[in-house]
């Protein structure tokens, strides 16, 4: 079962190491982890995606809460916006360029770099959308992919802040 967990942490060196050390030690599998600043400069926010059974997810949440530098943990799996950004460098020989641009348009992706025989395409969306786009690009030959990991935020009035 895939769960999306938002974690507010103290914005201090070493906090990311603590969180990842916890996952390693307890044998929890992280599917993706992203971290960045928030509306406050003393707090960072992580979005962690785990694919574990319910009991394990409960342990993940409880163990995270035990870390002194973790301020708040919330499950933002349901009724939330999940977004990820990917950069895809794809082979783009002259005879395929039109096709690639067309597919990119359908996905609302943008060509952000044009070289003699390749593009970098930037795409945002939920994981499925990005996976689908990457799959379509394979036929042209993908040179590299960089993904940010998912960030999530609950819709409406529910907030993860302090």
């Amino acid at each position: 079962m895939k769960k999306f967990i938002a974690v507010l942490v103290e914005n201090r060196p070493g906090v990311l190491a603590r969180v990842s050390s916890l996952f390693r030690r307890r044998g929890f599998n992280i599917e993706s982890l992203s971290v960045g600043t928030t509306e406050r400069n003393d707090i960072s926010r992580m979005t962690i995606v785990v694919d574990e059974d319910e009991r394990t997810v409960e342990q993940v949440v409880k163990q995270l809460n035990k870390l002194i530098e973790v301020i708040k943990v919330s499950d933002v799996t349901d009724n939330s916006v999940h977004r990820e950004l990917a950069l895809v460098k794809v082979n783009a020989p002259p005879d395929k360029r039109g096709e690639i641009v067309e597919i990119a348009n359908i996905f609302r992706a943008r060509i952000v770099d044009v070289a003699r025989d390749s593009f970098i395409v930037e795409i945002t969306g939920d994981e499925e959308k990005i996976n689908a786009f990457i799959d379509l690009m394979r036929q042209y030959g993908i040179k590299e992919v960089a993904r940010t990991g998912v960030v999530s935020m609950a819709r409406g009035s529910k907030v993860t802040s302090i």
Binding site: E58, Q59, K62, N65
Partner: peptide
Amino acid sequence: IDPAEIGK
């Protein structure tokens, strides 16, 4: 006192 112990 440690919630993580419960149900572990």
